[in-house]
């Protein structure tokens, strides 16, 4: 069942030493894939405050997993654990395991910088560097050791094309990235992320500060990127989750209430609280 479900045999993740609960989520719902990333029994504390309670969630490969929930439910905290961005938070503590291809990303031998090359992140507010468009995209490959000018130019062009921005910026690569519109800046940030050639893309409310047209472009882009990357997107916009994701997890007060195929979650939620949230009774 596993092998037939994967369209491209190369895509099969290498099996790691940790036995993962292949093909099923914490809820026992079958995804048909060995997860690209998975959280196992994750608790996360900011000082004494427990922000995440016993989270287990799989990110199936080449699928978009949406994480929805009201403000302060821990969805951003969770996604930031997947590339160890919370390492920067003082007094924070993690329990449980987060696996990438079956390996614990928090094991001592795992370097955070190396992990972040494989697990890229796009933030809530577009955050291009105050550099040129070219330099922004070239930054990641450069710090990762790509020095050859031609290769770098090619990488920048490809990344901008993949982020559907090339045609808009190809004549102004040497201009400041801050001259771009908000939506363009966010696509630039996506291009910058793609330039590092990650395997997983994390989107932390990528459209929170964008207008509807820019939002539509980003969503279109996510649907396109899904064919090549494993994607997780945090959003408080339920329509967005419905439009772009294959699977949806509903977070509430640091816990996962329900997770499953997006269509099922929205049409037939099993938990009363999920239903209340998606029908707009709270949040």
């Amino acid at each position: 069942m596993l092998s037939t479900a994967i369209e491209n045999p190369e895509a099969r993740p290498p099996s790691g030493p940790v036995t993962v609960n292949a093909g099923s989520t914490a809820e026992g719902e079958t995804t048909g894939f060995e997860p690209k990333m998975s959280a196992r029994g994750v608790n996360f504390y900011y000082g004494p405050k427990r922000a995440l309670k016993d989270i287990s969630l799989d990110l199936p490969p080449r699928m978009v997993t949406a994480i929805i929930g009201p403000s302060g439910c821990g969805k951003s905290t969770f996604i930031r654990l997947l590339n160890r961005m919370n390492d920067l938070v003082p007094d924070a503590r993690l329990e449980g395991e987060i696996l990438l291809d079956g390996f614990d990303i928090n094991r001592p031998a795992c370097d955070a910088a190396d992990l972040r090359k494989r697990v890229g992140m796009v933030f809530q507010k577009p955050n291009p560097f105050p550099k040129t468009i070219f330099e922004n995209v070239a930054y990641g490959p450069e710090v990762n050791g790509l020095r050859d000018r031609l290769a770098l130019e090619e990488r920048v062009e490809n990344s901008l094309r993949r982020a559907a921005l090339w045609d808009e910026v190809k004549d102004r690569l040497r201009e400041s990235a801050l001259g771009l519109s908000g939506g363009q800046q966010q696509r630039l940030c996506i291009a910058r992320c793609l330039a590092v050639e990650p395997e997983v893309l994390l989107f932390d409310e990528p459209c929170a500060s964008l207008d509807p047209i820019s939002t539509a472009k980003i969503e279109e882009l996510i649907l396109d990127l899904r064919r090549q990357y494993t994607i997780a997107i945090v959003t408080h916009n339920m329509q967005q989750a419905a439009r772009v994701s294959d699977r949806t997890a509903f977070f509430l007060m640091g816990e996962i209430i329900e997770v499953g195929p997006t269509g099922r979650i929205f049409k037939a939620p099993r938990d009363r609280r999920t239903e209340d949230y998606i029908t707009g009774r709270f949040g």
Partner: peptide, 14 residues
């Protein structure tokens, strides 16, 4: 802004 730092770290920079 902190976001520059985060962006840089997220790209695998030390």
């Amino acid at each position: 802004p902190r976001s520059f730092r985060e962006a840089s770290f997220a790209l695998g920079a030390n």
